[in-house]
């Protein structure tokens, strides 16, 4: 934020954050690039995936959690790759054990390989189970406002509709639905998935999103670290523009310079 304005912090499940950009850790060249890009993004919340340990691995092999230490970042384990509520719940429990009891998770239950579109039936079921088990659930979902409302009613601590398909870089395809979800929600709304470039991140914030979560837009940029910095600025610019309130749109022109006093008047 600028020197002249102090925004209120982003509040998720009782935790407060200055940054409104959340980033993933997938698709980077190596952990050094991951760490550099995250530093440039200013993100405080960082997502990761849980997978089987490669048992052939050298014990000295670098670990993601060394590049993104849990002492410095709020780690947000995801359930990417899960297609059933049961698998998503198991994954969250493993993540909680991995992070010594940390209970904030990103729930996503996918519907199919081609679209990675959320299976909202399984997502609702998993959310209910996880919340009953004490998890704070940030939930990836479709941009359907009725499903979003139901997820909030179950107790999800953040609603995260897709802008467009995961990894597609198609931006926000239905800004009107995102608006509807923002207007009805009492918990933070984040666009999660679809952002391709800085202007799209700014648009999400101008619509009134509380934050944006992205991975590919940074990791798959030609220069990820440079793009991470661009996204940080876009999120801040979009947030300030939203708070400032845009001018009304007009059908006709209106001069910025006065007519009175013109020399040929």
């Amino acid at each position: 934020m600028s020197d002249f304005f102090q925004d209120s912090p982003l509040r998720i499940a009782g935790r407060e954050f200055a940054s409104r950009l959340l980033v993933g850790t997938g698709k980077y060249r190596d952990f050094d690039e991951t760490a550099e890009a995250i530093a440039a993004s200013g993100a405080e919340i960082v997502t990761f995936a849980v997978r089987r340990t490669n048992l052939g691995q050298d014990a000295g092999e670098p670990n993601l959690l060394d590049a993104v230490p849990p002492e410095r970042f709020t780690l947000l384990p995801n359930t990417a790759g899960c297609y059933t509520a049961k698998d998503a719940v198991r994954t969250c429990k493993l993540a909680r054990e991995l992070l010594d009891g940390h209970n904030l998770v990103k729930l996503e239950v996918l519907g199919d390989d081609a679209t990675l579109y959320p299976n909202v039936v399984e997502t609702l079921s998993a959310a209910e189970t996880l919340i009953a088990d004490g998890f704070d659930v940030m939930v990836y979902t479709s941009d359907d406002p009725i499903v979003a409302r139901e997820l909030e009613r179950l107790g999800c601590c953040a609603i995260m509709p897709l802008g467009s398909l995961i990894g597609s870089g198609h931006g926000i395809q239905n800004p009107y639905n995102i608006r509807l979800i923002i207007e009805q929600s009492g918990v933070p709304v984040l666009v999660d998935a679809g952002i391709g470039t800085a202007s799209e991140a700014a648009l999400a914030m101008e619509l009134g999103c509380d934050a944006v979560l992205m991975n590919s837009a940074i990791a798959h940029a030609r220069q990820p670290v440079l793009m991470a910095g661009a996204m940080k600025k876009a999120i801040e610019a979009g947030r300030e523009a939203f708070l400032a309130g845009r001018m009304p749109r007009r059908q006709s022109a209106e001069p910025s310079s006065p007519f009175a006093g013109r020399i040929h008047g």
């Binding site: 850790t25 997938g26 995936a49 493993l94």
Partner: peptide, 10 residues
């Protein structure tokens, strides 16, 4: 038995 760890993801 499953043994898991953290890897990059979004």
């Amino acid at each position: 038995v499953e043994v898991v760890h953290a890897i990059g993801g979004g």
